[in-house]
Amino acid sequence: MKKHVPLALFVVIVMGLPVLLKNPYYIGALVFVGIYSLITISLSLVLGYAGQISLGHAAFYGIGAYTSGLLTTRWHVSPWFALACSMVITGILAYAIGKPVLKLRGHYLAMATLGLGEIVYIFFNSAVDLTAGPSGFGQIPRLAIGGLVFKDDIRFYYLVWFTVAVLLALVLNIINSRIGRALRSIHGSETAANAMGVNTASYKIQIFVFSAVISAVAGGYYAHFVTFISPTTFDANTSILLVTMVIVGGMSNVWGAVLGAALLGTLPEYLRRFGDYDILVYGAIMMVIMMFAPGGLVSLAGLVKQKFVGNLSREPAA
């Protein structure tokens, strides 16, 4: 029962935040954090647990957004069905891509995924007849359940964060299952894992496809929330930003992925007061975190816990 405590706490915080904040601007910014969190949580499985770097996740995010956006605006498919289609299409593509790419290692894998992301980005830009090219397209319909349209920020906030909570529950289960143990063994040593009879290739591809499909959901949410998409949202910078969120948050732990998305997703808003200097402060904050907390933000939480909780638990014994 105890292992459900963090998740329950998370749900309470997420439910309570809008009551405290009220302001639609903050809520809107938190919607983007939720969208990023979906990707970073699933990416942390690939990166932190399976130890496979992907610098191309913006491509899956983009394919999700474009599939959902195009199906609803061009062919007037219902948004939910379009979202489902985008998950299936992204899943198939991720499988086809992942099969050969995941055989690569380290920097080679990084370049290959970066390259694939670029190819998808070039496709969004160049297939003008299909995607409307670099200028993008708008008037994407909003999601709705029956008569309830996810029109204002607050409704979308609950939708996104509900999805995040479900995903977290799912991922926490995966981590503590057979698959989770297999993934960690790949991170440790792939050769050893193979020797122990773990079918590493199969697990790697499963988790890669899973995270791609979740990224597609995030993309679909983005498309239906902003109602306008253009290729720049899904370029290599976004891929790098997503990986940065995972690492800054702390990739040894899924909660780190949420923390990283929350910090780097809202940082541009905090930094507004710095005007032009925001880019310098942003870089400096990132550098300081990585230099002094190489384990990411969650490792800081770990330190605090050691200091306080550790002391507390020791006291009775003394």
Binding site: I240, I247, M287, M290, M291, P294
Partner: peptide, 23 residues
């Protein structure tokens, strides 16, 4: 330091250098 952390530091470094160059 781990390889990934070092890479992140170089990304942060590139943001900083770019920012200073902009000014």
């Amino acid at each position: 330091p781990s390889v990934l952390v070092l890479i992140m530091i170089t990304i942060a470094g590139s943001i900083l250098i770019k920012g200073v160059a902009m000014f």
